[in-house]
């Protein structure tokens, strides 16, 4: 399926991946992050149950310690 990931078109193998599966495929390993799908933030507890569909706009932002 094709999604927009961080403003770039991405082709991912498989249809209807969960957020957890997408993070694994893309090797997004750093543990603290924000995931938004079509502008909606997906809380961490919902990574398994939330499905990314073809055409979705996905934003993934790493949150780094320090302030």
């Amino acid at each position: 399926m094709k999604i927009i990931l961080n403003n770039r078109e991405e082709e991912l193998s498989g249809e209807n991946l969960s957020v957890s599966e997408m993070l694994k495929i893309k090797k997004f390993s750093y543990k603290m992050r924000i995931v938004k799908i079509n502008g909606l933030l997906i809380p961490r507890e919902e990574y398994e149950s939330t499905i990314i569909h073809d055409g979705d706009n996905v934003q993934m932002i790493y949150l780094m310690s320090g302030g």
Binding site: M32, I34, K36, P43, R44, L63, M64, S65, G67
Partner: peptide, 18 residues
């Protein structure tokens, strides 16, 4: 958001955005 720790940054993002 002006926290030091990454888990707090995630917490406030989830809270404010939802």
């Amino acid at each position: 958001e002006a926290f030091d720790k990454d888990d707090m940054k995630e917490m406030i993002a989830e809270t404010v955005q939802t």
